[in-house]
Design a binder for these strands. Sequence first.
DNA 1: GCCATTCAGGTACCATGTACGCAAATAGCA
DNA 2: TGCTATTTGCGTACATGGTACCTGAATGGC
Lengths: 247, 247
Amino acid sequence: MADEEPTSIWTQPEAHERSGPGRRPGYSREQITRTAVKIADAEGVEAATMRRIAGELGTGAMSLYRYVPRRDDLFDLMIDLAMSEIELPDDPSGDWRADLTLLAWQTRAAGLRHPWLIALLTSRPTLGPNLLRVHELALSAFNGTGLDIDDITGFVGMLNDYVHSAIHREIGWLEEARRTGLDPERWKRDYMGPYVRQIVESGAFPLFNRSVLDSRTAHLAPEERFRHGLDRILDAIAALIPSLSPR
Amino acid sequence: MADEEPTSIWTQPEAHERSGPGRRPGYSREQITRTAVKIADAEGVEAATMRRIAGELGTGAMSLYRYVPRRDDLFDLMIDLAMSEIELPDDPSGDWRADLTLLAWQTRAAGLRHPWLIALLTSRPTLGPNLLRVHELALSAFNGTGLDIDDITGFVGMLNDYVHSAIHREIGWLEEARRTGLDPERWKRDYMGPYVRQIVESGAFPLFNRSVLDSRTAHLAPEERFRHGLDRILDAIAALIPSLSPR
DNA sequence: GCCATTCAGGTACCATGTACGCAAATAGCA
DNA sequence: TGCTATTTGCGTACATGGTACCTGAATGGC
């Protein structure tokens, strides 16, 4: 039963409820994944090392390898666990805009709860069951609009691009502050601040300056900023749907 | 001159042309960065280790630390070097759509030449001079359209989101194949293929199935796919610009 | 020609993923 | 009730990574 061949973790389900000889497993994929998620939430993914996770569970690092082939696979499991928190109806409501709005806010909530989620998600081409579930609902929101599948995937892609990068921006410098070990306020003032001020004062990039100095949305609460961008993307999609266009 | 304080590398320019006592530097930031880029292009960022870069230059790993504070800063320098290859006019042409199209294709070209670029760019909030230059041109493309700065940054963000994630998708599984050490063809067939087939055959996600089986754009050449998506985003932006709308 | 200063880079330390191997546990069978 | 095949638990060990520290070599000014 040697699997020399590297295969996706989703094709290697956990051996459940075995009935034969041999010691019973003392842990589980889910338990390990939950522990990893807990650590990553509190201290960042880079803190969720095999030894650390094992330590948290009161065991040795190598024990984990009975449940997870490689650390990268654990990332896939973490992503899927986080995605499982996204609560959506089983079927689309018929109002694509409402469905996608709900999906966007749910995704944002999960992304803020697990600041590593979006970075992992966009860095690994993974297709866990919960990602599939969410994606399926996104696609099905456009059912009945008369769009063909290419347009639908295109629009869902547009929305996902926005949602992911908006969350990324919202978290980005917060995470960077944590990684460098400074508290967010100091990071902004002492680390990035002086450089940005220097750029602004140089006057070399006038529109960048305006985007820093004259921006109104920059001073909005994060939720409002997210809502603004989301509405704009949904407006854009609406404008591209021929059957909705006045023309 | 102890800098205990962590500061952005852009506020710590290289000490050029010193006139005092002491040995002359034998290397330079740029030389080190170019070497790192060359290695990363050929074997991935993870191969561009301090030892490896130093080895390529015929020196010891620790010598690099005279020029670059930390490896992360080297990433910022690599990003900026790659961005410097993006060739753009100094001033917008007056045709925002043409300018942004050029920018998108130039960005794609750089992203394909340096498969690590987009991943690093989206994972690090960096503001190197060349990124600023490119961003400034993107913003200035909308000068004269009567849009306020918040709308402009919003539209530029929409475009960037698309361009980055489209390149990411185009490279994504290719990079994953390289990381796992399989050649791309085998990776698709043996690694991801069986799982996708299993999902499709389960029939659990009908629209996902259609997006896999009935998609026409999936079979387009990568350039055409990119062009399609780009046109759609630009159409969407155009539709959102009030002064261009028929209404 | 001496000296303060700067660079080169070897050595060393610690953290990480993980291959290997053996001990412990367990269910079926004698 | 042992015996055995099988499976898990996990200590040890190795390779590889970033980088702190330190010594010696080079260099321009006095």
